[in-house]
Simulated assay, not measured.
Amino acid sequence: MHGPVLPGWLLVALCAATGSYCLLRMRSGFEGARRAAGGEAVMGFGMAAMAVPAAFLTPPPWMLTGYVVVFGGTALRALWAARGGAHHLHHVVGSLAMVYMALAMTAQGAAGVHGGHAGHSAGGVPLLTGVLLLYFAGYVLSTGLRLLPGAAGGVIGGVPAAAVSWGARPELALACRLSMGIAMLAMLITV
């Protein structure tokens, strides 16, 4: 990821922590929650790997190709799962955004070095980047609104929220989705 080093490392830490929690959420007793958590864990760890500052590690071309393959496959899997729920469409958009950013990173890397310093040309398509920024800004706002007190209620599947294990708490899943949405916005801004 191109941009300042400290925010890049903070983004890596946020995405890795979110991916780790999503792995823990996979122990939930609800099958749908496990599937969603697995896709979100892949997204969190992939975002963490992609957010490593370019000043520290410039990814080799094979790694960028790997991002395209992994997130292209994730997008296809989410598209297949979208038959059962609208949330999977968000996973499709997120995975395709990761493919887009990997391709943009490849284009930025192909710009090479000009006059002794790295090229600073944009690697992405400004219109597509803008559309993705608008989508994720809307997603972050709507997810944040659902986290407001009283929005979710105190009952989860007919069980009082206090009796549900921390790995199956919907507000924690929403917090993970919110943090990944914010991270996606931060990554898209650098494209």
Rank of each mutant, 00 (worst) to 15 (best):
R83H: 09
R83C: 04
R83Q: 09
R83W: 04
G84V: 09
G84I: 03
G85H: 13
A86D: 06
H87W: 14
H87D: 10
H88R: 02
H88M: 08
H88D: 10
H88E: 14
L89F: 12
L89P: 00
L89N: 00
H90T: 14
H90V: 13
H90F: 09
H90C: 08
H91T: 09
H91C: 09
H91E: 01
V92H: 02
V92T: 09
V93M: 04
V93A: 14
S95M: 06
S95Q: 00
S95P: 00
L96I: 01
A97Y: 03
A97D: 01
M98T: 10
M98E: 01
Y100V: 04
Y100F: 15
Y100W: 06
Y100Q: 01
M101S: 07
M101K: 03
M101F: 01
M101E: 06
A102S: 11
A102E: 03
L103F: 11
L103K: 10
L103R: 13
A104H: 03
A104I: 10
M105H: 07
M105W: 05
T106K: 11
Q108A: 10
Q108K: 12
G109C: 06
A110G: 05
A111P: 02
A111R: 12
G112Y: 02
G112C: 05
V113C: 03
V113P: 00
H114S: 12
H114Y: 07
H114I: 15
H114G: 10
H114M: 07
G115N: 13
G115R: 12
G115I: 05
G115A: 15
G116H: 03
G116N: 01
H117N: 10
H117P: 01
H117R: 12
A118N: 08
A118E: 11
A118Q: 13
A118Y: 09
